[in-house]
Nucleic acid binder design. Structure first.
Lengths: 131, 131
DNA sequence: ATAAATGCAAACGCTTTGCGAGTGC
DNA sequence: GCACTCGCAAAGCGTTTGCATTTAT
């Protein structure tokens, strides 16, 4: 077994922790950097890659050009704030049956889907001046 | 006014033409290169950017890491084949009301969404050996 | 001359990899 | 000594931009 792996451990704990979902590599890197005295981007990347390979986390694309990762237990969709970038998750999956419809209308055998709602989070929706 | 602009013209015509949807820059570049004797990637990019700026086309993200563009009249979703990458469009928009649900459950003011189904196109679903 | 389109090459942002050094066991 | 993690630096990949050239008016 591996012995000390501060960076990797921190990354793992980050996913274990709080309600934070959909980490980007930047965010993970920054968090790791803060938690320890410093951590390299590539090390964080490798930790994340390993976790993804093991199936512990899943990579998702939120349409902002960056890769995001989240713990891969349940399947759900996301809402991303156009203004601040905050991401929240949508409780249920509204698409289970929609997939069937798609299959009928296009002939594609739908195996998965990828949905992101965008809009404004409660906070940004209130502030008169957005970005 | 601009005078001769072979590349740009070809790009525009490509969008006007056939049933081809969701062009990637590569595809546009290749098509333009074939149509004329040659065309530069950046020129194609600029033509596309201009069209996007004018609202003639819309950029969409199909989750394959590349930018895709399509004529921006109606709003619809996509199905992309995991095997060959072919993209088909899904007739209706199944999400109009779903967005309302999301808004209720998350508090986000949903202004847009971005959905891509993935799976296997009819052809790839039949062939026993896929990529 | 002027304005515009083009090609070329290089910059960029983010992801990914090669490699050498440090370190528990 | 070995296996493993880490950091550094550089490579990749796709997108974007700067600049000099050509060309139709």
């Amino acid at each position: 077994m591996p012995r000390p792996s501060p960076v990797t451990d921190v990354v793992k704990s980050l996913f274990g922790g709080e309600a934070r979902h959909a980490w980007s590599l930047d965010e993970l890197h920054e968090a790791a950097r803060v938690a320890l005295g410093g951590a390299d981007y590539s090390t964080v990347f490798r930790a994340v890659s390993a976790m993804e390979r093991e199936g512990a986390i899943r990579r998702i694309d939120l349409g902002d050009g960056k890769a995001h990762y989240e713990v891969g237990d349940d399947h759900h969709e996301h809402v991303r704030c156009d203004s601040c970038g905050q991401v929240a998750e949508v409780p249920g999956c509204v698409l289970e049956d929609a997939a069937a419809g798609v299959q009928n209308s296009t002939g594609f055998k739908v195996t998965s889907h990828h949905l992101v709602f965008t809009g404004l989070c409660p906070a940004c929706a209130e502030t008169p001046s957005e970005l």
